[in-house]
Amino acid sequence: MTGDKLIEVKNLKKYYNKGSLHALDDVSVNINKGDVMVVIGPSGSGKSTLLRSLNLLEVPTEGSIWFHGVDITKKKYKDETGAVVKVNIDTHREKMGMVFQHFNLFPHKTILDNMILAPMKVKKMSKQDATEKAMSLLKRVGLEDRADAYPIQLSGGQKQRIAIVRALMMDPEVMLFDEPTSALDPEMVGEVLEVMKELATEGMTMVVVTHEMGFAREVGNRVVFMADGKILEEAAPEKLFDHPCHPRLQDFLSKVL
């Protein structure tokens, strides 16, 4: 199921407050094609910071992130011929979809316009093609009748499903989820997890920060436990949940399970 290395994080550090707060403290991890990597850990452990570093919404203090053989934390790199090429972060972000806890739909645009904006502006897709694509994605998540609605008219679960398909419009190679169900009413969590599960089944590479341990166990193929800005344990879900090694993880699981 999993294959080549897609993202390689090497010795990533992120300091806040002039270095007194280590949000990420020497994190190294590889994300392979087809991976569904679930990141768990207590609040403040650096889960969001790690995820947001992957598409440089946070700029790391130190370390490197390799994506398609390019260190995207650097401004320039040398290509195969030795020529110096500028790293264009926008083209990398295009390939990394991101879903936020608070949806972040554009409130002044309809659902359809939310979805077709970036494909038209970034990929220069025609409005017709983008609309067709958007409608078929909306159909997939059962929201094709809400294309002309505004975000404010939707429920939380609907908004998050839209946020997911909006990201899918760019045909990303990896999807990053930062607690996608934490802001939802309990009865809406299922519908969002269902969409994510389907994505995983189709082979999408995903990095998911979540407190949904059921999802982690069922859908994830790797689970990473973070605390104090470090990855303390990483294993397949069965192993990590049933035979946790690190005392911090044992303590954490006893509280959440």
Binding site: N55, R93, H108
Partner: peptide, 27 residues
């Protein structure tokens, strides 16, 4: 305007200026 709007737009690959023009300024 909530920073999340900018982050969502940038994460879709839109440039700083496109984000300003289509997402932040209209709101």
């Amino acid at each position: 305007i909530d920073l999340g709007q900018t982050e969502a737009s940038r994460s879709l690959g839109m440039s700083q200026w496109q984000t300003m023009q289509h997402v932040v300024l209209p709101q």
